[in-house]
Write a protein that binds this DNA or RNA. Sequence first.
DNA 1: CCTACCGATCGGTAGG
DNA 2: CCTACCGATCGGTAGG
Lengths: 204, 204
Amino acid sequence: MTHSPRKDQIIKTAARLFSRQGYHATSVRDLARELDLKGASLYSHISGKEDVLWHILEEAAQQFLGAIEPIAISDMPPLEKLRAAVRAHVRVVTGNLDAATVYFHEWKALQGERREQFLAYRRAYERYWRQIVEEGLAAGVLNPKADPKFATLLLLSAVNWLYQWYRPDGPLSPDEIAERFTTLLLEGLGTHAEERTAETVSIA
Amino acid sequence: MTHSPRKDQIIKTAARLFSRQGYHATSVRDLARELDLKGASLYSHISGKEDVLWHILEEAAQQFLGAIEPIAISDMPPLEKLRAAVRAHVRVVTGNLDAATVYFHEWKALQGERREQFLAYRRAYERYWRQIVEEGLAAGVLNPKADPKFATLLLLSAVNWLYQWYRPDGPLSPDEIAERFTTLLLEGLGTHAEERTAETVSIA
DNA sequence: CCTACCGATCGGTAGG
DNA sequence: CCTACCGATCGGTAGG
């Protein structure tokens, strides 16, 4: 976006405060104090408190969409798309942890048209995931027993929960986290002992 | 708990409002209006706004713990425990959707000791899940490549996200949702074509 | 359960 | 970017 450096700083600081205390629990004066100025002075840079929230949410939404879109419309093999999408999502969350937390937690504070706009962004994002899953099913590289809606939900659940537990000082890099999650999701938590035996027998 | 019917009604109504608008965005007068009385009248039943939040959160925490504990300490086979735990969790969420939403979203509004107490409940709950996963790994019924911490995280992500999309008027019953999730998580989203071939060959 | 009221704080504006 | 200020609303209390 084309903000002044000061406005960027305000938005970034607000994302930190909103992510920790929540939008409603953070006052305009809290935000101002963090920036070493008076509450009233903020209003030469912003038009209102919700305006700040909107900028955080919109930028986060653009990041998520901008990360997945090129993957979804590319001609990678479906399984590669899935891996790339998880990696992209994990990178956005880990690279913008405050904004991502606000994105998942605080959008309900939006009113009216902006709320609709935000939900449209989220639906568009989920649609890309759904597309990738359906391609994988059509290509026969995803479990044919998986309902597309449910499989998408499972993927989104896993990646969307990341902001709850990710810590930058943890032992795994974002890409390692993505890799492990994808592998676990694709291979499954089970050992498939019964299925495998049955299949081996039937093949033999 | 041993509340008066009126207090139960207050807590239930508060859970509905808190889950929709958030704790900080819901005023004591909003809550009173919903109960057809004046804001000040609430204070003969409650000792403060945070008190109401605490009751919602504590009851939700007790429900989650009360559901998983008997499963975790039972002598069911590990895979059955996992299925039962998912089913129990889904039942708690779907049967108390407002409280569950508050449980996941609004606990940050708690201050001091109650916040610590709440986090202790959540850690205890996650520990039960971890135990079940580790039993499954030890018994050889879970994918030996799965890191216990990661596998637990994946399970919790899937079940914890449920409150975000579950609607009581949806097509699937809670137990059907649990069943599909467990199957998908255990079998995995992939087809395992490569692995299966490799194993078949090595067995043969 | 009510009326009446409290001080504190809210988001935001005026004017410089 | 500041001081000074606004009306509205906040959670909560007193007293009945």
